[in-house]
């Protein structure tokens, strides 16, 4: 796990990052269903309109699944100290968020927990 700068400061600055969506993710995500998943980051997509982390998780039966985890605009995250280097390929992260509609392996994060327990984002 790479820790860039002060993660504690990033966590504080990134509070409520989820609240800055500028298009409706209510269309894609279930408002009343949340879940926590954890896995290894396989790709970082730190670009507008929305940051995405692709992560691989291991299910209970031992198989693997690839999930597309999405959050706010990078412009907004960067201003709060959450940069492309904050989470990188190979990092193990835990993600809590709204599940995608139609059983798709999509998640809109409410918060992301880093390996050292630091949480980025906040409960909405």
């Amino acid at each position: 796990m790479r820790i860039i700068g002060s993660i504690a400061a990033i966590a504080a600055l990134a509070a409520a990052a989820v609240a800055n969506a500028h298009h409706s993710f209510a269309v894609e995500f279930l408002e009343d269903q949340t879940r926590t998943i954890e896995g290894t980051v396989t790709e970082v997509w730190f670009k507008n309109p929305h940051v995405r982390y692709y992560i691989e998780i291991t299910t209970e039966d031992g198989s693997t699944e690839s999930w597309d985890v999405r959050g706010s605009s990078p412009t907004i995250l960067v201003r709060r100290g959450w940069t492309p280097k904050t989470i990188q390929e190979g990092d193990h992260i835990k993600v809590h968020g709204h599940l995608g509609r139609d059983g798709r392996k999509l998640m809109s994060w409410i918060y992301i927990e880093l390996e050292d327990g630091t949480r980025l984002g906040s409960e909405y």
Binding site: A19, F25, A26, V27, E31, S108
Partner: peptide
């Protein structure tokens, strides 16, 4: 109304 995420 809707919140900033689009939820009604």
């Amino acid at each position: 109304t809707r919140d900033i995420r689009g939820f009604v």
